[in-house]
Design a protein around this nucleic acid. Structure first.
Lengths: 233, 233
DNA sequence: GCATAATTCAAACACTTGTTTAAAACTGCC
DNA sequence: GGCAGTTTTAAACAAGTGTTTGAATTATGC
């Protein structure tokens, strides 16, 4: 009688969209992720999830306890490895005495998300959209869950950005980082992103992936804003 | 027997938060706006709205037809005058042969929202947070409603930005404008914005309003990103 | 002052929500 | 083969959802 195995130790191939070959938990998570990305927490019902997954309604409560438990494992199984890789790469710089630039710091925040998206997500972009959706989800439960994952990682990055951009006062840099994070998260969550990128994709080499296009466009945009001289106080 | 007057002709003093002196419609709209800002469309129930407004449950259906009608008037009574002012000021520039800079264009998009916020909103920031929440609301109804208001206004601004920033290819500029709009909307919707601005407010003159602080910080951030040289293709 | 319209009200409607239950089916192991 | 543990299933639960109804109340116009 489980629903106690909320640990996300088993994330080997939670890839494909809800297919017949997968376990019940994996199919639930895949279906829930696909729906949560577009509908948000409140708009995603357990009946819609279980119907898409092709499993019984009670399976969610059996395997995850309740709806919050489902969303929690849904988010943590993505965010935990993401933040681990981010901090690992950031610490690699700080151990060596190299002071990373703002561009490198943004790459450290972006690249792991893109790499995980390519390796773990079914549709390729569902993982990125999950992150964006979670950050803008109004449900208090999601907000509370995110603030933990968000806060612990961002604190360390804030110090690194302060060293990379010493000419901007701390208060202003704080606000600029806030702008940066919101631009990142909502860009990832946006449905029209693929459509916006279409013309750019054609002009680039065919080996250029969609993820890299976003990276190559968004990072210079954000770097320019971050390092621009402080406005007169 | 109304619920046909969905027109928003009467927006004289829909100010105060739900108070006893206001009409039933105004109290419903105020309460709905306050809740919608924090809970989103799906998370805001009619019973919570009517309870906060101190009116009967059936009053919503009587005055607005249904929940969608309520949210529609909630958004249009704010967005319609906002977009009118924006386009009016933009056209004033285009009639004269002055080509507005990117900074001026952003001011045209920001300033009317801030002015309306100061004059019409109860808590001062509820109006801005309403805009931000609407743009990130996952409910399909809100998205459909917004896409109209959003699209018609942004098309004209896109041309103006293209003239202001001629050195950036159209496809790239399109993406940068997308980043700009998302940064704007989610910044406005964010709850922590006031807390982030606190240290800046103390250093500025006491006449400096919170809205101007956002303006003075966000616009240079966005302008720098918009006008930065195009990445090599 | 009175008839008429507009509004408010309590109650119920049909429906969906997350959750629980207990029996059924399946699983692996000796 | 049979038994214990695990999982799945259909059904029901209580609570909440938007909406409707019809009577009571208030406001309006003559």
């Amino acid at each position: 009688m489980p629903y106690e195995n909320l640990g996300h130790a088993n994330l080997p191939t939670l890839n494909h969209s809800p297919a017949l070959g997968d376990s019940t938990q994996e199919r639930i998570l895949s279906a829930a992720e696909a729906l949560y990305v577009t509908q948000g927490f409140d708009g995603t019902s357990l009946r819609a999830i279980t119907k898409l997954a092709g499993v019984n309604l009670a399976a969610v409560n059996y395997h995850f306890g309740n709806k919050e438990g489902l969303i929690r494992t849904l988010l943590t199984r993505r965010l935990d490895p993401l933040n681990s890789i981010r901090l690992e790469r950031l610490n690699a710089y700080t151990r060596s005495d190299v002071v990373p630039t703002a561009e490198i710091l943004l790459q450290i925040m972006f690249l792991p998300a893109l790499e995980l998206a390519k390796s773990a997500s079914p549709t390729g972009f569902n993982f990125l959209r999950l992150l964006g959706r979670a950050y803008s989800d109004p449900s208090p439960y999601t907000q509370a869950l995110l603030s933990n994952h968000y806060a612990t990682a961002i604190v360390q990055f804030k110090d690194a950005f302060a060293k990379a951009i010493p000419h901007v006062p701390a208060a202003e840099l704080k606000l600029r980082l806030h702008f940066t994070m919101t631009a990142l998260s909502t860009t990832l969550a946006n449905h029209d992103l693929l459509r916006l990128m279409a013309p750019l994709r054609n002009k680039k080499s065919k080996t250029e992936t969609d993820e890299n296009i976003v990276l190559n466009q968004l990072i210079p945009f954000l770097v320019a804003g971050l390092v621009t001289p402080s406005v007169a106080l």
